[in-house]
Design a protein around this nucleic acid. Structure first.
Lengths: 343, 343
DNA sequence: TGTTAGCACTCTCGAATGTCGAGTGCTAAT
DNA sequence: ATTAGCACTCGACATTCGAGAGTGCTAACA
């Protein structure tokens, strides 16, 4: 456990380093308003903090830099709720603006978030488990090709084109669509695969010739797992950070970000609430120098998606956490309102 | 005009520099198989070429590097059609594979192109002037919101959601859609706006109450100009190029690339056939160190879109031009076949 | 006993200097 | 016209050096 003084000095050092990105020396600390000890005293404390692992030196006679353990302690124990009204208002205005498609809102949120922080924002989702099928349709393009369109009650449109196997006749296809529409309208997407294999199958068996093939085909063409959508903001922001000088580091980072599956995985594991992952706490090699802050937004108790910010370990945790917290609440609210008005 | 020998040496220097990225010295040149002069002779020729502006020195006693004028001469006069069968076959296989949506093919092409070249590929379009309306539909979500869906005969699906103004009743909306569907089915997208304002307007005036508002609204919501789509491949490839070391340069380049409008403009101006833009010939400040090669693909005589590669001025022009030429032909062919089979 | 001033020491950073090698231009010989 | 030879130039790289920032330790102090 840290003494009050140790805590104070740790905090001041981290705050200073977050702002300046330069190692912090005892003299600079002693000059701060909130500090009333001499540089020598501070040196003693710093030596203690270093021994405990909260600070490190870049070389034997340099100032101190926070270690990952230091950041962790800072995030867990030092940060109180800080409210930055100006930024929060920007976000509220954004969310309460007119929107019909949730996706537009999400994209905009990602941009605002990255603009406000100068880091890179990633938003995952919303996952559409709770959204319901509004309409299902198959438009035939030619004798052997067609496009299936699924509209949800959130205004989301999924489409997939496929070739029609020779075994399926146009009239069969029409029947299939009719059946699907009748039985699936209003069903939540989460229950789709289940319903498809139970109720619908039996119905189709009754009316559609050669049904097995049709069914298998349709299922694979249209109801295979939907890719979750990713929205980015400020992809180039990190290039402004002073720690981002090595081209190899830049390359490995951006190559990682290009791999959407990997990014989705990174965000998907996040639990409810805010989660801070600092440096080596990240499992992915390429971002072991970065910190990742994630927050989820929900509908009811159902997790809908994840908002995340990625930046250097020297991150403005206080600001970022406040902002992410607020945005996740706003999005949760917006989602609730949306359903209330439209559902 | 250059003598044969000058031409030969210019070519060898450029080829060497393209491969090595290092200034080329007279000694190195003299050792090449195709060169039978001594280093001293070559030095004289190099001095001539420099005087004429085709080569520059990086400092007073360095080897020579091609100038932009040098590259220009190389591209205009030196490059003959070179055929790299292996790469061309990869592309043919790609194009002749099964595809229904043209967009999937385009995305895949972009990826293959960047993989084969190690530069960044950008594909614009296809612009959908010639594609025809297959079906038009409006799905109402709630009393005051709906989503309009347009399916083209190419399997492309456009959708846009909008709020329904209070003045328009659900039955009116339905009538509108019926009319639109009846009159617009099979119409090419290029003629859409025109038809909308002539034929359809009069029909709608007849059947739909309060039609003016409906019409204006619908037009603005759905038929406003569609953004042209961009496909990228190998966005991080350029980070592997040795000239890409300065973080500022990297940043300004990627920021430029994030601005889709700008990129679209860059590619849109391109005429038919292959066009090479070297360094300062580019109008956009951020890519004055790069070369851009564009090629268009067509349907009939109608230009459909643009394929482009962007890389350092030290680019493998020969390979790139061959590849781009081939891909644009393949895409043009594919497009033709597509319409023949489906149209 | 906790705090502080003082001081010797350490290490980085940038400027200055020296050396090496690649490459050139010029001249004279072929 | 071509080439060998040679003096010269310049960048790349290593080395040295001093300044400055910062530390740890010790002894004096409240």
């Amino acid at each position: 456990m840290l003494t009050d003084r140790q805590l104070l000095i740790l905090q001041v050092i981290i705050d200073d380093f977050i702002e300046s990105a330069h190692p912090v020396g005892s003299r600079a600390i002693s000059k701060k308003d909130e500090i009333n000890f001499s540089a020598a005293t501070i040196r003693n404390v710093m030596a203690d903090l270093e021994e405990m692992g909260y600070l490190v030196k870049t070389h034997s006679s340099s100032g101190r830099v926070p270690s990952e353990k230091g950041y962790r302690y800072y995030v867990d124990h030092v940060i109180g709720p800080t409210i930055d009204n100006r930024n929060l208002n920007i976000m509220k205005d954004l969310i309460h603006g007119e929107f019909i498609e949730f996706e537009k809102l999400v994209q905009k949120s990602a941009e605002v978030l990255s603009d406000l922080t100068n880091y890179t924002s990633i938003i995952l989702g919303p996952e559409v488990f709770e959204t319901k099928v509004k309409q299902l349709q198959i438009v035939t393009l030619t004798d052997h090709s067609a496009v299936a369109i699924l509209v949800t009650d959130t205004g989301h449109v999924e489409h997939r084109s496929f070739t029609i196997p020779a075994e399926i006749s146009p009239s069969d296809l029409e029947k299939i669509v009719n059946i699907l529409n009748e039985r699936l309208k209003g069903v939540s997407l989460a229950r789709l695969p289940e319903l498809l294999t139970t109720e619908v199958v039996s119905l189709m068996r009754k009316y559609v010739q050669d049904f097995e093939k049709s069914f298998n085909y349709l299922q694979s063409a249209f109801f295979q797992e939907q890719p979750v959508k990713l929205y980015f903001g400020g992809k180039t922001n990190l290039l402004n950070q002073p720690e981002f000088t090595d081209v190899n580091k830049i390359r490995s980072f951006y190559q990682m970000m290009e791999n959407e599956d990997q990014v989705v995985n990174l965000l998907k594991t996040s639990q409810h609430g805010i989660k801070v992952t600092i440096g080596n706490e990240n499992k992915i090699e390429e971002i072991k120098d970065f910190s990742l802050i994630t927050a989820s937004y929900q509908f009811g108790s159902e997790k809908m998606g994840t908002i995340a910010l990625i930046g250097p370990t020297r991150m403005e945790y206080r600001k970022v956490i406040t902002l992410l917290n607020a945005l996740s609440n706003e999005m949760t609210d917006a989602l609730y309102l949306w359903y209330k008005n439209n559902g």
